[in-house]
Design a protein around this nucleic acid. Sequence first.
DNA 1: CGGCATCCGGGAAGATACTG
DNA 2: CAGTATCTTCCCGGATGCCG
Lengths: 230, 230
Amino acid sequence: MKLKKITKKPQALGKRWYHDACGSALGLELLGERWSLLIVRELVFGGRRFSDLRGSLPGISANILTIRLEGLERFGIIRRRTLPPPSGAQIYELTAWGYEAEVILRELGRWATRSPLHDPTLPLSAASLLMSFRTMYSSKRAKGEAATIGFRFGADGFVVEFDHQGAHPKRAEPQGCALTVVADPTTLASVVYGGRPLADAEARGELALTGDRKLFGRFLTWFPLPEKIE
Amino acid sequence: MKLKKITKKPQALGKRWYHDACGSALGLELLGERWSLLIVRELVFGGRRFSDLRGSLPGISANILTIRLEGLERFGIIRRRTLPPPSGAQIYELTAWGYEAEVILRELGRWATRSPLHDPTLPLSAASLLMSFRTMYSSKRAKGEAATIGFRFGADGFVVEFDHQGAHPKRAEPQGCALTVVADPTTLASVVYGGRPLADAEARGELALTGDRKLFGRFLTWFPLPEKIE
DNA sequence: CGGCATCCGGGAAGATACTG
DNA sequence: CAGTATCTTCCCGGATGCCG
């Protein structure tokens, strides 16, 4: 039996280091490696398991995810926790400071959607879509209407409260909401942002509404995309 | 003589692509490669030449800088321009959209300085320091005092206006300012953020003040660093 | 199945030298 | 000064397999 090797250098701090006191450069050390920010994005609405993360990050390989999680934990951005029995599963969740990185994701996303390369019909995860609601929601467009809307994306239920301050999603069962939307995130995004007709998505069975259909019609107008460049 | 090779694939869009409609993921495609955001940072206060960039980005190699500049130009974030004669030099400058990426840098920097790994005594560039002034300036701390302060970092002169809205740096000769600071950016950062005594820096000839010394004393209090985590 | 180690191939980053 | 060419090193991604 071999002892655990101790020469493992999870990431950064080793050699490829920006020698730069600038906070932005440090931010890139902490979050700038491939996949790191997207992992944070997936954790913004609560802790997830290893395989949840793998499933939401198309193309990441298991070893890279392991390395990133180690690095983010070392930096104090996420923590690892074992759920109490009977589940006993291990989850990864953001620390308080890690949660504060959400603003970086929001600004990055808001800026990038102005690129002509942005395509809202591509696949995306539930966390991405909910974060886009937070980013793009315009209480002015909503004319101050307060609403609570439920969403079901496969096994994951969310409830989002909209008010004059913004959109507030949380992981919860969407029962008792005035309106509940069942779809996959990509479909809903194509309707909200891609202009895909609701009737089309419903006819193909890719989206189902329960409750106040007129509310859904108004909901669709609450997320103006920023103007494209040029 | 060989014809120019056309098989050059500047960056991304090739294979290593996050298949993700999320705006944040697209932002990482555009700006997430190593060095890209730091190049944007160096351009925020005006166009720079290739060798200026190389000098301000410790450790970047010429070929990588070439590749990044090509990519940023292709994406519409920067543009290449030839200065009119007699200079005739080529400079790189941000497009209007590129300038708007500054908010990403600011949020990233503000967030990252809360890490215990942040060390304000490391070397940094003039652009980094001026951006940190913009990020960290507290008009509350300045008690509404409006001031115009000049800075000279080697060959580069800047004038920064401070008012109740924020700090507004621009590239200009610092003549006629009530106060002018001559230093290198790293020295000034160690005094403003690292608590290094002014007298020490002056005694060693690393910093020189011209004009209102008392204003400098107040200036030092205008940039509260966010609290460290834990 | 969830988490992690190991090996491998390809490609990106880094260092250095060189050119107009 | 503004890059290009080349070589080396290292990281990423994919496959596989171990162990609880």
